[in-house]
């Protein structure tokens, strides 16, 4: 039997499911309509395991493991929802909201923001943590797009889509810790960078950090669904 046809059986939240070897826990859970929250994961891009929202409990492991990069093993017993996980996920969301300046009422992505809807689905009504109120820059030098670092959650989707799909690798990250910024080229103005203006980064951005100037004042839904299709066509 070749490794590709190797089938694993495991349980997720006490449901018995089957999976192909090499699949991630997240893939299998989503196939079976078991919800696991994610922010940095996006179907069609590589995974980095950075947002830590998809952490799950696996029987026999004291550590919590990120579902997006954990591959299935035979007989795994996975819990995707527990008091402990809910508590961590809420705290992580709170950290994100308090870290930069997420003011939904004035945000271009209002009602179309993954961070906002995640908070809503978790019933997050207020933040216990002190807001940091740190000021970050806005770069509107590009003719069509703007990056507002105040709304960036550093999920790195823009970096990955630019490098892996568009093949331009214009986006990257600079600095450390809370000073991290996504940058174009070597922190050139976006408008003066080697950007191909394809707009993929804007479509995959989960918040209003990257937006299309033309959509300011009107609803700005993002459409990252093109990615799996694009990948399918590329591999065909």
């Amino acid at each position: 039997m070749s490794p590709d046809s190797d089938v694993k059986t495991l349980t997720i939240d006490e449901r018995e499911v089957s999976a192909r070897a090499g699949q991630t826990v997240l893939d299998v859970a989503r196939e079976n309509e078991i919800p696991i929250p994610t922010l940095c994961h996006l179907e069609g891009l590589s995974d980095v395991g950075a947002c830590r929202l998809c952490l799950v409990e696996i029987a026999g492991s004291p550590k919590l493991l990120p579902a997006c990069v954990t591959t299935v093993q035979e007989g795994m017993q996975i819990t995707t929802d527990s008091e402990r996980l809910r508590k961590h996920r809420r705290t992580i969301l709170e950290m994100l909201f308090a870290e930069r300046n997420h003011v939904c009422s004035v945000c271009v992505a209002n009602n179309h923001c993954e961070l906002q809807s995640m908070a809503q689905s978790m019933g997050l009504t207020h933040i216990r943590l002190p807001y940091r109120n740190a000021a970050y820059d806005v770069d509107a030098s590009h003719i069509r797009f703007t990056v507002d670092h105040n709304r960036c959650i550093l999920c790195q989707r823009c970096i990955r889509v630019c490098a892996e799909i568009e093949g331009a690798h214009v986006w990257d990250i600079m600095n450390r810790g809370t000073n991290c910024l996504v940058i174009t080229d070597l922190k050139d103005d976006w408008g003066a960078s080697t950007c191909t203006s394809c707009g993929k980064c804007v479509e995959v951005c989960p918040t209003g950090a990257l937006f299309n100037k033309a959509r300011v004042g009107s609803p700005h839904p993002k459409k990252p669904e093109f990615l799996p299709y694009l990948n399918l066509m590329r591999n065909a």
């Binding site: 950075a50 950290m95 600095n175 810790g177 809370t178």
Partner: peptide, 12 residues
Amino acid sequence: GKCVPCRAGTAQ
């Protein structure tokens, strides 16, 4: 600065 708990949590 890669993962949220360490980046934002230590600052908090």
